[in-house]
Design a protein around this nucleic acid. Structure first.
Lengths: 114, 114
DNA sequence: TTTAGTACCTTGTGTTGCAAAGTACCACAA
DNA sequence: TTGTGGTACTTTGCAACACAAGGTACTAAA
C-alpha cells in the first residue's frame, strides 16, 4: 500500500527535521515557505503545521533568529537566520547523524555476514 | 554540554528504532534483553521501557511473532521472530532509510556548493 | 469590494520514547 | 524454607513531537 509506505517515511523523518532545518539555514537565510519547498525538493515532505512550531522552538532555544522582509508580492516574510549557537548545534547533529548512519550500517552488515 | 549532545542523539533515534528492531530480527530470533545488548553494541542505546512497548506494537501489527523458551538461568525468555509481513515492512524501511540518507546528503551538498 | 494568492500561526489529537516502579521466575545459600 | 541476587518481562504516567485542520492577515488584480 502507498499509505503504509508513507507512514514508514513519516516515522523515520521524526527527529531528523530539526537537523534538516539547520542544514538549510546554514546555507542561506530562508522563510518558512521556501524551507518547505527545499525540503520537498529533496523528498522530505513536511507540512506547515509541522514546520512553524519547529521554527519557533528553535528560535526560542537560541538556535535561530529572524527578521521581517518585504515580499515582492504578498505579505511580508519572516526570514530565519542561524545563530552561532545554532551552528554549534548543527555540528553536534552532523556527528550524531553520521553515528546513526554508521550504527545502522553495522546492523545491516552483521545481517549480511550470516 | 554532554546532556544536550545526548538529547540530539535521542531525538534522532526516534522513528528509526522500529527499523533497527526489524533489522536485528531479520538476522536471527532474539529476546528483548539480547536486542537491547545488540543495540547498545552499535551505539544505539535504548531502555527497556522503550523497547517492550515497541515489540508489543510490532507484534500487534503482525510484523513479529514470539514463542517462549526456557532460559539456562532465570525466567523463560520471549523470543521474537520476524514474519513475512515484517520482512516486507523491512524492505520498505530499507528503501525509506536510503532515501532519507540521500535526502540529507543532498541538503549537505547544496550547502557545500555555495 | 470581492477574489485569489501568499504567508504566518494556533489548536487538538494520536503516537512515541522514556523514567520509574512493579511483577515474576530461577538458583543458590543460610 | 526463607532470603537474596540476578534475569526477564510489564505497566503507568509524562513530555515531546508531527500532523491535520482551521484561522488570521497582507497584497494585488478583477
Amino acid at each position: 500500500m502507498e499509505s503504509s509506505n508513507d507512514n514508514v517515511r513519516a516515522q523515520m523523518r521524526k527527529g531528523v527535521l530539526e537537523y534538516c532545518i539547520l542544514c538549510i539555514l546554514s546555507q542561506k537565510e530562508a522563510y518558512a515557505s521556501s524551507i518547505l519547498e527545499e525540503l520537498k525538493a529533496v523528498g522530505m515532505l513536511v507540512v506547515e503545521g509541522t514546520l512553524y512550531p519547529l521554527l519557533i522552538r528553535q528560535k526560542n532555544q537560541g538556535l535561530l533568529n529572524y527578521r521581517w522582509e518585504e515580499s515582492p508580492q504578498g505579505p511580508p516574510r519572516k526570514y530565519y537566520v542561524i545563530t552561532d549557537k545554532g551552528r554549534a548545534q548543527l555540528e553536534d547533529m552532523d556527528a550524531a547523524w553520521q553515528e546513526m548512519v554508521q550504527s545502522i550500517a553495522t546492523l545491516k552488515n552483521s545481517h549480511e555476514n550470516l
